[in-house]
């Protein structure tokens, strides 16, 4: 099977941009198709989330398929360890391969306690390293226990990392394990400080992994403060918060800050960026244009 557009782009050395959209809460798929259409031409691939925070949403496989078939943009299927054991996960992956999904982002997943079904039994049969191992095994033509599959899927495996993690050494140890397990690219947690990114890129220089840096456009100063206080590994510098506070149109200012950072990322050792504009996907093309990347 041929390589995915995403991997081809990353391997070509081109600065690669991906974006993230949420699966619908309900059965209406029109909106995500519209959103994907907006992104077409600006991004190489689109991630679809797997019940973020443990909130019940449509199985991400379906939007991934629709985006590929109806919009013609490659999808990245996000899969967490929260809701399925190793049997369920493999079943979904086999289905995904049959539908032509080529990229998977292997995640741990938020604990159900954070979402709209806190009473749910958390599964976590595997962790993200083991999930990566599982995908690699499928790519070899076997299920996780070594039974032969009819036909061999070919997934490119992405993983997550937090450049702002403290201690960074622990984060790097885990990333090394993910690499050893078969990861090819990493889409990071949001970064706002180029120094943090540079430090992270130096720390992973010994790994041959492609890094797509997380970019989350700010919507308000309050959002920035909230993220600083509550979101793990996020450190938004004081001057950015001040700019957001002073801004007359905070959303516009947030997009400008994102565009400036995107430019800085292009100048760094990173291989691309992953824009997570939840609820404001419509601005992603503007941000990319503003950054002069198209």
């Amino acid at each position: 099977m041929t390589k995915s557009e995403l991997i081809k782009s990353l391997e070509s050395g081109k600065f690669t941009i991906t974006a993230e959209i949420e699966a619908p809460k309900g059965i209406n798929t029109e909106k995500i198709i519209q959103n994907a259409q907006l992104l077409k031409g600006y991004v190489t691939a689109i991630n679809v989330t797997d019940c973020p925070l443990g909130n019940v949403m449509m199985n991400s496989l379906v939007p991934c398929h629709l985006i590929q078939e109806k919009v013609g943009v490659e999808a990245v299927l996000q899969m967490t360890c929260r809701d399925r054991n190793r049997i369920g996960i493999q079943a979904d992956f086999l289905g995904a391969a049959a539908l032509g999904i080529k990229n998977i982002l292997a995640l741990t997943g938020d604990h159900p306690r954070l979402g709209d079904h806190p009473q749910a039994k958390p599964v976590f049969d595997l962790d993200s390293v083991q999930l990566t191992m599982l995908i690699k095994k499928l790519n070899e033509g076997f299920d996780f226990n070594g039974h032969k599959l009819e036909g061999t899927p070919k997934f490119h495996i992405g993983v997550a990392a937090t450049p702002g993690a403290d201690p960074l050494e622990l984060e790097i140890i885990k990333l090394e394990k993910k690499m050893e397990a078969g990861a090819e690219f990493v889409q990071t947690q949001a970064v706002y400080d180029i120094n943090i990114l540079d430090k992270f890129m130096d720390a992973v220089s010994h790994l041959s992994i492609k890094v797509l840096v997380g970019v989350v456009p700010l919507k308000s100063a309050g959002m920035a403060k909230y993220m600083n206080k509550h979101v793990p590994g996020i450190k938004i510098p004081e001057d950015i918060i001040k700019r957001m506070e002073k801004a007359e149109e905070p959303i516009k200012e947030g997009n400008t800050i994102a565009a400036e950072f995107l430019k800085a990322v292009k100048g760094s050792k990173a291989h691309g960026a992953h824009i997570m504009a939840v609820g404001t996907q419509q601005y992603v093309p503007t941000i990319i244009k503003q950054a002069g990347l198209i």
């Binding site: 604990h111 993200s128 140890i173």
Partner: peptide
Amino acid sequence: PKSHLNGPCGG
């Protein structure tokens, strides 16, 4: 809470 065997999650 996630019984991880290979290190911490992103949380």
